[in-house]
């Protein structure tokens, strides 16, 4: 039997087990079904447990209760206000971190001297938990928006820098040298070749790291805030409103998921050559 025939007959071997053959790719329909199940199964489980009354409703509210509280928060405008406040902080802090991290990361990736100068410091700073800076930030910046944005900035910039730096190291040296022999100057090489070549990895880096800023915004709001999804969760705890906590958690998850998809879409649109 030829190798392809062997592979074909293997692929045909039916049953669940064939899904776990290494390198095997289930059909699009199968994958879609599994993806839907990934969300649907936990939801069904939750509904069943809640409707059977296995757990006190104070601790595990039913999906209906959560949905009702979501609807009432949406109606009163609180939800919208919270979302705007939290996403504003996330985008503000993360945008600042990105604007600084991308050029620094590129320079560190390209110039060994700059890398040697910055890497030890950054490697140490990134192990200082961002949340530990909160007291200091409140002392320095008060309790307005600034400390929250600064916290997200501090919590994401180091990872952004290091991951951009790593991405840049994958730019083939031949591509840089070709550009030089075509008459490219340093700036042209950095912007038009190094940054451009690394763009897909940079977008992916941002996609992964923005998740951290969602963690931090909630932490920041738990400490000191008037509005925001994290703040609402804390208030809900005070009034034992687990339904509200669940609703806010689901909103956090959905927004995060949407941002993730947004980055994936951006990657697919701007870097067709790489996907």
């Amino acid at each position: 039997m030829t190798a392809t025939a062997a592979a074909a007959s293997k692929g045909r071997s039916t049953g669940l087990l064939s899904l776990f053959t290494l390198g095997a790719m289930p059909s699009k329909a199968v994958r879609g079904g599994l993806q839907v199940a990934s969300l649907l199964v936990p939801l069904l489980l939750w509904t069943t447990i809640a409707s059977l009354g296995l757990v006190d409703e104070k601790f595990l509210p039913s999906p209906q209760a959560v949905f009702r509280s979501l609807a009432s928060m949406a109606e009163s405008g609180i939800l919208f206000q919270d979302i705007v406040a939290s996403t504003g902080r996330v985008f503000g802090g993360f945008l600042l971190a990105t604007l600084l991290a991308v050029p620094i990361g590129i320079c560190m990736g390209v110039y060994p001297a700059i890398c040697a100068l910055c890497e030890p410091l950054i490697a140490m700073l990134r192990y200082m938990p961002a949340a530990a800076f909160i007291p200091l930030l409140i002392i320095y910046l008060g309790i307005g928006e600034e400390p929250k944005i600064a916290l997200i900035f501090l919590g994401t910039i180091y990872f952004n820098i290091l991951m951009v730096m790593d991405a840049v190291k994958f730019v083939p040296i031949e591509l840089i040298e070709t550009t030089l022999t075509l008459g490219g100057r340093s700036r042209q090489v950095l912007v038009q070749v190094v940054a451009r070549y690394s763009l897909p990895s940079i977008i992916d880096t941002l996609r992964i790291n923005i998740a951290t800023s969602w963690n931090l915004v909630v932490v920041a709001e738990l400490v000191a805030a008037e509005v925001g999804l994290g703040k609402r969760i804390q208030l809900a705890q005070r009034f034992f409103r687990t339904d509200q906590i669940f609703a806010e958690l689901i909103v956090l998850g959905l927004i995060g998921f949407a941002i993730d998809m947004g980055f994936r879409l951006l990657l697919r649109q701007s870097c067709k050559w790489a996907v």
Partner: peptide, 8 residues
Amino acid sequence: QKYSLYPW
């Protein structure tokens, strides 16, 4: 020898 076209 290789890797010298801009892939994008």
